[in-house]
């Protein structure tokens, strides 16, 4: 059951447990600090990718706006981390909760539009959030609502949890949070909401004829996905610590996100890991060892766009073969 939910016939709890043990204990010994930093990025990004994949692959909702709850989760968590003594895990939940509320608001248009129109509407809403984040900027230890320091000397890094201040400890913390977020998604997908989402995705008339409130379950999906992205945003702030800018949550980041998620695969939570690997490991490897920074800056989206086109063509052919497309 859970194996099918995770979308891979080879899934076994022992494999997941083995991967967790490898990530928590073996990886810090195998990889140097730079790669641990990158793998932390990957674990964080996999949560955002999973939220997009869940919306599209499980509910059939094409959202290009998932960077918005990602950014909002980051902003709220960073601001509260500077301003309060709230325990860090609780901060993540608050950041995710605020993002979930915004996610539900972003999801409201989904009740009226679908497909390409929904994609455009969610992208526009993400641009709106981008503008707000650009105006607010991310807190860096200063006073006031924004928490912006007036001078460079007053700036401070985003605090990390006291039990995970070092890079390796923080990596382990992120891996555990990512595991919890993935299990949260599995818990929803394997139970009543997951079956309702599958029904909505298959056929809305059939879902209605089954007594499923489409409004309720679509908004639940947007809320859950935004929560996942919001928690990831909170972790991102504490991961980067310095120089957090709106360019990490802008429209280009939104398009890049959907591109890598589609390449990783939307019907499987493993696809989210693959997408995060493309975006945060493969990208860095190519930048440092093969292509060069300037080339990558210029052509990253083009290369991923080509990959996305190939992916979509292959997916369409596979769907036609299975009789899912006429």
């Amino acid at each position: 059951m859970i194996g099918r939910v995770l979308g891979h016939k080879t899934f076994q709890p022992t494999i997941v447990a083995g991967l967790m043990v490898f990530a928590l204990f073996a990886m810090p010994s195998i990889f140097d600090a730079t790669w641990i930093f990158n793998f932390t990025q990957m674990a964080i990004y996999s949560m955002v990718a999973a939220s997009v994949g869940m919306l599209y692959g499980r509910v059939g909702l094409v959202s290009l706006g998932q960077v918005a709850p990602y950014g909002i989760g980051a902003w709220v968590t960073i601001r509260l981390a500077f301003a309060t003594d709230i325990p860090y895990p609780l901060l993540l939940i608050i950041g995710g909760g605020v993002a979930a509320v915004i996610g539900v608001l972003i999801g409201l248009p989904a009740l009226r539009v679908s497909g390409l129109y929904l994609a455009l509407v969610t992208l526009l809403l993400a641009v709106g959030v981008e503008v707000i984040l650009f105006r607010l900027k991310f807190a860096n230890g200063g006073p006031g609502f924004n928490g912006l320091a007036l001078t460079m000397s007053d700036r401070a890094p985003v605090p990390r949890p006291t039990f995970a201040e070092g890079d390796v400890a923080f990596f382990r913390f992120v891996v555990i949070v990512a595991f919890i977020i993935f299990m949260l998604a599995v818990a929803f997908l394997a139970t009543k909401p997951g079956r309702a989402w599958a029904s909505v995705r298959q056929s809305e008339p059939s879902a209605l004829a089954s007594g499923i409130s489409i409004t309720r379950y679509k908004l639940l999906a947007f809320g859950l996905a935004a929560f996942m992205a919001g928690v990831a945003g909170g972790l991102f702030g504490a991961h980067v610590q310095w120089s957090i800018g709106v360019d990490q949550f802008n429209r280009q980041a939104a398009l890049f996100l959907i591109a890598v998620v589609l390449m990783g695969g939307i019907h499987s939570l493993w696809g989210a890991l693959l997408a995060a690997f493309f975006a945060k490991i493969l990208l860095d490897f190519l930048t440092q060892n093969v292509i060069g920074h300037q080339f990558w800056n210029d052509f990253a989206l083009t290369i991923f766009g080509i990959g996305l086109m190939i992916n979509l063509i292959q997916t369409t052919k596979a769907m036609e073969k299975k009789g899912l497309l006429e």
Binding site: K192, R195, A196, A198, S199, Q202, S203, P205, S206, A209, S210, G211, I212
Partner: peptide, 27 residues
């Protein structure tokens, strides 16, 4: 009020049991 459709609209990704259970748990 329950119904079937001219074009079958079962939930392809779920098992037979889950298909029927989905209706029962909501309706």
């Amino acid at each position: 009020v329950r119904r079937t459709f001219q074009t079958v609209q079962t939930i392809e990704s779920l098992t037979v049991y889950e298909n029927v259970r989905t209706v029962h748990e909501h309706a």
